[in-house]
């Protein structure tokens, strides 16, 4: 017998629901992304590579990747600390703090962008103190990094938090009974359980940061070769009617998105096999 596409069910409406889902998905997501891939294939791989290796484009991609990586990296210990404090300790204002974690998700990126610029510009609340020390934050890659730390923090906290909450306290007790110090127990008993969540959070934070636009462009200063990010370069190419250039950068970024999505799925598959949950 041939394998059925769908298991029989008494519940009606499968064809309608799935049909609508697929049609909407195709129209809104697949067709537009397909158009990008189509235009990229017209350009050809060698053309895309040579457009990407253009000095300004290459530099913009490099800046986007390095700052996104460093922001996600910083958010691993930061996010872990926040998740730990929120899950394990009770203190006044804990719920408020917990609600605040999602602020970067809820606050429009342009608003975050101008707010961060107001804080870190040389005449800003924090920027003026940094200027006294001779440090420049806004309009440098450091400013980009700060904006990316802001937008990607919730990804790590929100992936680690539920897993940490479900950690079986008995394994910690066992570790303590066996003579492990508290630090040792946390390091070698709890941390391994959290690893898949940390990796997933890191990948999500990185993927979001690489493509981030609104919160970055105000604080970045957008100096070519110094603080110009890849998404901004797409916008600039479009404004110059350089559709081939814009398509090439977008194709590379889309490929990265797919790779990150694949990595996240692999991590979760590995976690399911290793720990029996995501």
């Amino acid at each position: 017998m041939a394998i059925r596409f769908v298991q029989p069910s008494v519940i009606p409406g499968f064809r309608l629901a799935l049909g609508f889902t697929l049609a909407y998905l195709a129209l809104i997501v697949l067709l537009p992304l397909g158009a990008l891939v189509f235009r990229a294939s017209e350009l050809g791989l060698s053309e895309i590579v040579s457009l990407a290796l253009d000095e300004r484009t290459f530099k913009a991609l490099e800046i986007s990747f390095v700052t996104a990586f460093l922001a996600a990296l910083f958010n691993v210990p930061f996010g872990l600390l926040v998740a730990w404090v929120l899950v394990r300790y009770d203190f006044p204002g804990r719920r408020l703090l917990d609600a605040m974690i999602d602020l970067p998700f809820a606050l429009p990126t342009a608003v975050a962008g101008i707010a961060l610029t107001a804080l870190y510009a040389p005449n800003g609340w924090i920027g003026s103190y940094a200027a006294m020390l001779g440090l420049k934050i806004a309009f440098t890659p450091v400013g980009i990094w700060i904006a990316l730390v802001f937008v990607s923090l919730p990804f790590i906290v929100r992936t680690v938090q539920p897993v940490l909450a479900e950690v079986d306290r008995e394994v910690e007790e066992a570790a303590a009974t066996l003579g492990a110090s508290r630090l040792k127990a946390v390091w070698s008993v709890i941390l391994p359980v959290l690893t898949p969540a940390i990796l997933t959070g890191f990948a999500l934070a990185f993927a979001r940061s690489v493509g981030e636009y609104g919160s970055v462009i105000f604080i970045a200063g957008n100096i070519p070769y110094v603080s110009e990010i890849a998404p901004l370069l797409i916008v600039i190419k479009l404004e110059e009617y350089d559709y081939a250039g814009a398509t090439a950068i977008a194709t590379i970024m889309l490929a990265i998105s797919f790779v990150m999505l694949l990595v996240i799925n692999l991590i979760q598959g590995w976690a399911r096999r290793r720990f029996g949950r995501v």
Binding site: A35, G211, P231
Partner: peptide
């Protein structure tokens, strides 16, 4: 997981 700018661009291309 798609950059917002790429999301806008794909509609321009279309």
């Amino acid at each position: 997981s798609v950059s917002p700018v790429v999301a806008g661009l794909v509609y321009v291309i279309l």
